[in-house]
Simulated scan of single mutants.
Amino acid sequence: MRGEYKVPGGKLVAADVVLDGGLMVSAAISGDFFLEPDEALARINAALVGQPAAAKVAQLAAAIGDALDPDDTLVGFTVEAVAIAVRRALGHATGWQDHEFELIHHGPQLPVLHVALDQVLAEELAAGRRGPTLRFWEWVDPAVVIGSFQSLRNEVDPDGAARHGVTVVRRISGGGAMFMEAGNCITFSLVVPGSLVDGLTFEQSYAFLDDWVLGALADVGVKAAYAGLNDIASPAGKLAGAAQKRLADGTVLHHVTMAYDIDADKMLEVLRIGREKLSDKGTVSAKKRVDPVRSQTGLARSEVIEAFKAHFRARYKTTDSALLPSEMARAEELVKTKFGTQEWRTRVP
């Protein structure tokens, strides 16, 4: 059995394994990584022999680490990367090419309906009624979408929000606040099975699920990289932030909001961005943290989105899809019973 894992920003690791009686009796690791000395590869392979087929990433990585000599040097990959490739070979983990993704780009919806749809599509995937899905958002009404655990009064200035007609919506994922006006940012949600991120830490899964985004940005002339836990940045400044929620069965909701043409003055009247957060980002001005994609590409927002869709389609098996009436009905129900209620919006006052 064979499995592969491409380290985000690193190298490809492939694992060919043979099982007998629930144990690995042969293992051969290969790839375009760098490893010194040559004999270290034999130590990695030997460490996998005798490991159970049900071994988790941590167990496999520990066995490999114990077998390596102190001077063995791995460049472009890690022992965890080897373990993930092995897990994929054994059928416990999946790769991008193991799935066919559905792509949805619906007409404008209320921001509160978008956060409800995120939950609905994650539940539909978990129930086996829909495949992995990439969904781009469109909206008209301005809003601030805050993270599941953020304090409403600490994040949003009610006077500024009222002055600019901005509603406040709370999503089910963590992370920070999103200031959203029609046309000022690009937002998309990715719903995938837990098997796609099997063995990855939460931190690793952010970069892994957004690796295609860096490629799409390169297509439109923006050189970008992951920064910190969940930010995507260019040399000119921050471009985007990501957030995640994992359902009980492991299904992952991952979404990204990317600055396109932010009105920084208005944003600062609506959001309360504390000094502690600014210092953590290495800047004294929130304006400097928001670097619009428009200024770096010269493209219309719609053109950037189309380029992103084209990149995703070229990279992964993708079919165009649409929201089902039953999904819309469920989302509208959740707006009434959860996301549109004062109780949910103020659950962290």
Rank of each mutant, 00 (worst) to 15 (best):
R43A: 09
R130E: 10
Q204P: 01
M1A: 14
G22A: 13
S326E: 01
D69N: 15
P132S: 12
K6V: 09
D38C: 09
D261V: 02
P132C: 03
L268D: 07
G176R: 15
A322W: 02
D71R: 08
V220A: 00
A116W: 00
T337F: 01
V293Q: 10
G9R: 12
Y226L: 09
E343G: 04
Q109A: 02
T341N: 01
S279Y: 12
S189P: 02
L247S: 15
E138D: 15
P108A: 07
Q51D: 04
G298A: 05
K6G: 04
T167Y: 00
M180V: 12
D38L: 08
V348F: 12
P142W: 11
G50Y: 14
V140M: 06
L103V: 13
R171M: 07
E269K: 01
P349G: 06
S326K: 02
L323E: 00
S26P: 03
A224P: 03
L110F: 01
L253K: 00
L334F: 01
C185E: 14
V115A: 03
V293S: 02
E343Y: 04
L209Q: 12
E203F: 07
K223Y: 01
S26V: 02
A40M: 10
K287N: 02
R272N: 10
S302W: 07
E80F: 10
I305N: 04
H255Y: 11
A177Q: 04
F33W: 15
S205V: 07
I104H: 09
E306A: 15
L323T: 00
I186R: 01
D159T: 08
R275L: 07
G21C: 13
A62C: 05
